[in-house]
Simulated scan of single mutants.
Amino acid sequence: MHIVAMQKVNAKKVAELAGVSRSAVSRSFSGNGRVSAETRAKVFAASEQLGYRPNGLASSLARQTSDIVALINGDAPDFREVFFVQNLSRALFNAGMTPLMLSVRNDDSGAETLSQFLRFPLLTAVVSADSIEARHVIPHCPYAPPIMLNENYSRDDEVDAVRLDEVKGIGEMVAHLESTGRKTLWFIAGRQTTSAYSSRKMALLEALARSDLRLLDSEVGDFFYDSGTAAFERLYQRGPLPDAIFCANDLMAMGVMDTARFKYGLRVPEDLYVVGFDDIPQSSWPTYALPSIQQRDADIINAILEILTERKEGAGDQRLSKMVPTRFVPRTKAEFA
């Protein structure tokens, strides 16, 4: 069998077909420098005919910059993460940047995966993966510090950060439980290797210390639906049943609700008031009507874009840090009656 090598299409061939200079082709695609509308139309028509696409990575390296923003998330099936990454990718693209999603394992191999795939410089990285520390990603971001959404960085790391004010939303939840006559509580925390494990636990304990609500027992889940079910089973076997249960994310709370209702015949929220965290879209479905502590994707994305804008305008050497608010969203099935 005879294999015919495909001829490489480059900017020079586009220029020849369009009848313009090589630099005019470059300016047409980069947007840098003046080029007439007529010339740009010729270049794009010739590119379409030849099937030419400029090498954005090579162009960035030639300019000693990059427009690539890596979105580094974990491999856990997280409903919220899907919507967040989609919305953030769209916002970055609309702002003239190129989003690159990387999913790494939430264990020690996450950093190894990162080094295998990132063999080119980034503008920056937005890091939410549990397993990735600042030191793993800083070398890949020569143009702007990585933006950490987790707490895996030290005081001396050159990073920017977006953090959640979990104290506010959790405090509102505790106040609501007290106002509706609840007196006892169970808590299901998330995976112990995550920053959310300690931050949400501490915020809850601080809020409880200012209230008469009593924490009877606690368990640890893994942010999955099934782990919420398993954690609730362990708590239920130990008893006694509290007035309310707070779960560190909505998926675990949904597992708790279904087990309580369909296995043990409990009425939710009458016998057991269940609260989640994240306020994912499914929380508002009538099947769950799940009260939740809301962190808005739009607020986090705006904070990320603000950091990138400040870096572009020359923010200097100081760390940029943004605090995003949370709020408690009470929700009942009566809303759907």
Rank of each mutant, 00 (worst) to 15 (best):
W285G: 00
E133K: 07
C247L: 14
S109F: 12
S321L: 14
F336A: 09
D250R: 04
D317R: 13
L123N: 06
E310M: 14
V25F: 09
R105V: 10
L102H: 09
S89G: 01
L266I: 05
D67V: 08
P77Y: 14
A11Q: 15
V127E: 02
L50W: 05
C247P: 09
D212R: 15
F246E: 06
A91F: 06
S23G: 06
L216R: 08
A337F: 13
A298W: 05
P99F: 05
A207M: 01
R135S: 15
R238G: 04
F120P: 01
A298Q: 15
G96N: 04
M101G: 06
A209H: 12
D130M: 13
A62L: 14
S60G: 15
L71Q: 02
V127T: 03
I147K: 02
S103Q: 12
T332K: 10
G221K: 03
A298C: 05
F187S: 12
A161K: 08
Y153D: 01
K12G: 08
D212G: 15
A230C: 02
S283N: 08
P145W: 02
I188V: 15
E166Q: 11
R210I: 08
G74F: 04
E306D: 15
S36Q: 07
V85I: 14
L118C: 07
A62V: 13
Q192P: 06
R40N: 05
S60C: 15
Q7F: 00
L114A: 09
L308T: 01
P145Y: 09
C141M: 10
S198D: 08
A45P: 01
C247F: 09
T124K: 03
L251K: 01
P242L: 04
R135I: 12
L235Q: 06
G314N: 09
V127C: 06
A134N: 04
E158V: 13
A289M: 08
I170R: 04
L164Q: 13
R22I: 11
G19K: 02
G221W: 04
P281T: 04
A76R: 06
L50Q: 11
S115H: 11
A260N: 03
P269Y: 01
G314Q: 08
I138Y: 01
T332N: 09
N150P: 04
A18F: 03
E310I: 03
V82A: 14
W285A: 12
E219K: 10
N73E: 07
A37F: 03
D108G: 10
V126I: 13
A334C: 02
I245Y: 00
